[in-house]
Design a protein around this nucleic acid. Structure first.
Length: 449
DNA sequence: TCTGGGGTCCTAGGACCC
DNA sequence: TCTGGGGTCCTAGGACCC
């Protein structure tokens, strides 16, 4: 059974009203005033409302029209400057990497840090000082953006900690006190419990996490399904040992667009599909990846939404193929009444094997995110262990920080790869990787922990 | 002027294979 | 000649998150 850590060593950072905060930083006249960032057209929604705008009831995901109704004259409605947000985000993530090599960025304004992989005093006092210092460094490095920090014995506890004390928050949940914090909270405050699950739980009298704790696993599974039910059962007991995983590989790439007025013209729809396919493919190619499944998303005038997909024999990353497949999928859909949104996506991604990184004869295969188990039988004689140091001429120095049957995970760090990417290699035949490959030199310190 | 855009994970049924 | 399992892949939809 999975558990939790015996120390509060997972940190969660959430930047406060991030997009609005960057706008207020860059435009002093907006400071102290309500600011709403999001779509400004007729069908726009709010991405972020500053705390001043929240005081009037503006919220993320609300239609911008509704936010305009609620906010006073003088409220700034802005379309957003994503390049600025992205740069600021990187500045923040760099600060987090000062704390530990294990930083998992979950979005532009949110990340987890595994403090156990760094050299830190994990006492409550030490963690409080660490968090206070981190917040100050973020504020300085970004020119005034605040973040809320939660620290706990798991990702869930850390996230709940940052949530409970925002904005500009700092909350350490000491190991052992998880249930005291958790049980009074409404179930809706658990990550993963949204409107649908919240309603179902409420219908059977479950309102707080404490209520949840009293329900049997069988009841919860019957109520919300196998995976979710099991997840809730464990969450109520603070059982969460999900690791902090840096550099997660993307599993799909997509682009979609909502039109100011519904489309009906077939030629126009085909042009839009081509445009969306171009955007998706440009990103695929930039990432050096391709995918086998092409999906068309389709939203009608009445907001009914459907998807049609087709899986191809080979991964594709060219605009012509993607848009041809998507256009073919469009043909099977009833378009009467008009089309509100179109989307094109590619999934089932397989990273290219980059031939120049390894000599052909000894090339470990880059794993797909999905298939670490199959097609990679355990090596007969060779293994690596966490902490062992290895290196590659093209990738820089690195160390093994995870290994298992048939695979080895290496974090590289060096001048060529500043952030230190993590790569997992399958070893499907021990003979493919010689005992002492000449270009795997031993350098660099193994990670602490 | 109702309801964005980018994702992840799960479920369920049917096809197909052993 | 009657009744199976299990496993994987594919498709479609839904919940949820930021």
């Amino acid at each position: 059974m999975q558990g939790m850590r015996s120390e509060a060593s997972v940190l969660h950072l959430d930047l406060d009203a991030f997009f609005a905060a960057v706008e207020q930083r860059d435009k002093p006249s907006l400071r102290g005033k309500p600011v709403v960032v999001g779509g400004t057209g007729g069908r726009g929604v709010v991405s972020t409302a500053s705390y001043e705008a929240r005081a009037y009831g503006a919220r993320s995901a609300m239609s911008t029209a509704e936010a305009r109704r609620r906010c006073p004259p003088g409220t700034a409605f802005l379309g957003g400057r994503f390049a600025a947000y992205s740069i600021t985000s990187r500045v923040v993530m760099d600060q987090l990497r000062e704390l530990s090599p294990l930083v998992e960025q979950v979005s532009v304004d949110e990340a987890y840090v595994d403090l156990a992989a760094g050299d830190h005093d994990l006492s409550v006092g030490g963690l409080t000082a660490l968090a206070r210092d981190l917040k100050e460094r973020i504020r300085t490095a970004t020119g005034g953006v605040n973040g809320s920090v939660g620290i706990g014995s798991s990702k869930t506890m850390a996230k709940i900690g940052s949530e409970l004390d925002k904005p500009d928050g700092l909350l350490v949940v000491p190991a052992g006190s998880e249930l005291d914090v958790l049980h009074p909270l409404p179930v809706r405050s658990l990550p993963g419990v949204g409107p649908a699950t919240g309603d179902r739980l409420s219908a059977v009298g479950v309102r707080t996490v404490g209520d949840l704790h009293e329900r049997s696993l069988t009841d919860l599974v019957a109520l919300v399904g196998q995976a979710h039910g099991g997840g809730l059962f464990r969450l109520a007991r603070a059982l969460d040992d999900r690791p902090v995983v840096p550099d997660r590989e993307a599993k799909s790439v997509s682009a979609e667009r909502t039109y100011a007025t519904d489309l009906t013209d077939l030629g126009r729809l085909q042009n839009e599909i081509r445009w969306l396919a171009d955007r998706v493919v440009a990103r695929l190619q930039k990432e050096g990846t391709a995918g086998r499944t092409v999906t068309l998303k389709f939203r009608r005038y009445d907001f009914t939404t459907l998807t049609r997909s087709q899986t191809l024999p080979q991964p594709v990353d060219d605009a012509r193929t993607v848009s041809e497949v998507a256009t073919r999928l469009l043909a099977g859909i009833d378009r009467t009444g008009g089309v509100r949104l179109l989307g094109v996506g590619v999934s089932g991604l397989a990273t290219y094997v980059q031939g120049d990184l390894f000599a052909p004869d000894e090339a470990p295969v880059v794993l797909d995110p999905e298939d670490d188990e199959e097609e990679t039988p355990a090596p007969q004689s060779r293994s690596w262990h966490p902490g062992q140091d290895v290196a590659h001429a093209d990738m820089g120095a690195g160390w093994v920080w995870g290994s298992g049957l048939g695979r080895v995970t290496v974090r590289f760090e060096g001048p060529l790869t500043p952030p230190g990417p993590v790569r997992t290699y399958a070893v499907d035949d021990p003979e493919l990787v010689p005992a002492d490959p000449p270009d795997w030199r031993r350098t660099g310190p193994p990670p602490p922990g």
